[in-house]
């Protein structure tokens, strides 16, 4: 969860529509730069990409063929332009592994990955708010201390460790109630296989709730210590009204940027978690594409993941700027 950090980009002179438009345009610009970087790394690094792909034993002829197939003999700008227009029109070439169009390979996998991420997010957000608020409300109780301790452990754990422990507990002889491998056959919708989804979703949800719940707890405690809550007390309002009308909305608003970051991280957590459970999504596709040097698939997967990741990051930035301008 290392990308969850406080964001700093304060809009100058308040928040306005034009600021938002500028921020979004900047976002598009950054995404373009991302694509340039991705392109440069995969296609223009020093050394012969075709040779890297084919390995040491390939003949010079094979290498020359591949160079032509990849368009490596043209100028970088032309190559990039060709690649970018291809990406924007859904023409991302075909897999070097089996010749299938890249779109056909990653399309279903995108669906699988996003289904996994979205189901987790839908669970994370409400659970984190309830757990965080409850923990803050019971501050310093045994429950609260346990939650803080466990959540602090989870922020430090790699996702594969959590996943593996869940497999050891639920999918082996200990309990043996759930499948430890989530192999969803091609063509099936992931939600047709709920049992296969339980463990991957649980892994992502656990990690998200532990992180976000803790932030919600902190911002709820902040809100309860704020001057406006003191003022509400001095006005003689009831404890319930102070809690739900005065403290809670501000606490939730303060955790919104973090929620968006959790969304971003969930998208990438998908990579490792998918691999743990052999879940057929973008993450497993990236890993196998790296292993087989399947360049077009690799580019496409990374571009999709990076874009989704950046969009949520951007959303977090915008939300926290809005929060600060209040």
């Amino acid at each position: 969860m290392s990308s969850l950090m406080t964001r700093v980009s304060v809009p100058r002179g308040g928040l306005s529509f034009s600021w938002l438009v500028r921020r979004l345009l900047l976002g598009v610009f950054v995404l373009l730069l991302v694509s340039v970087l991705l392109f440069l790394v995969t296609q223009a690094l020093p050394g012969d990409v075709a040779r890297i792909i084919l390995g040491k034993d390939a003949t010079a002829e094979q290498v020359a063929d591949l160079r032509q197939q990849l368009g490596l003999d043209r100028s970088l700008v032309v190559q990039y332009w060709h690649w970018l227009t291809g990406v924007l029109t859904g023409e991302m070439g075909s897999s070097l592994q089996n010749g299938e169009p890249v779109v056909d390979i990653i399309g279903p996998r995108m669906l699988d990955s996003f289904a996994l991420g979205l189901i987790s997010l839908v669970l994370i957000l409400p659970i984190a708010v309830v757990v965080g608020v409850f923990s803050a409300h019971q501050r310093d109780s045994a429950w609260d201390k346990a939650f803080v301790a466990v959540s602090s452990l989870f922020t430090a754990l790699p996702a594969f460790v959590v996943g593996m422990l869940l497999i050891a507990l639920f999918a082996t002889s200990v309990l043996g109630v759930l499948p430890g491998v989530s192999n969803i056959p091609p063509g099936d919708m992931p939600w047709w296989h709920p049992a296969e989804l339980v463990l991957p979703v649980t892994t992502l949800t656990l990690m998200g709730v532990m992180y976000l719940g803790r932030l919600v707890r902190a911002s709820f405690i902040d809100a309860m210590n704020s001057e406006y809550v003191q003022m509400a007390t001095l006005k003689g309002l009831s404890g319930r009204r102070i809690l739900f009308r005065h403290a809670l909305p501000n606490a939730v608003a303060a955790s919104l940027p973090a929620a968006s970051l959790v969304a971003a991280v969930t998208i990438t957590g998908v990579v490792v978690v998918e691999y743990v459970y052999s879940y057929p999504g973008l993450g497993t596709a990236v890993v196998s594409a790296v292993n087989s040097h399947d360049l077009p698939v690799l580019q496409a997967c990374i571009l999709v993941l990076a874009t989704a990741y950046y969009v949520f990051n951007l959303l977090a930035d915008i939300l926290s700027a809005m929060g600060r301008s209040r």
Partner: peptide
């Protein structure tokens, strides 16, 4: 209060 900017609830 001394500082109504922080004592009034920003979201109500």
């Amino acid at each position: 209060p001394q500082d109504p900017a922080t004592a009034l609830n920003p979201s109500l």
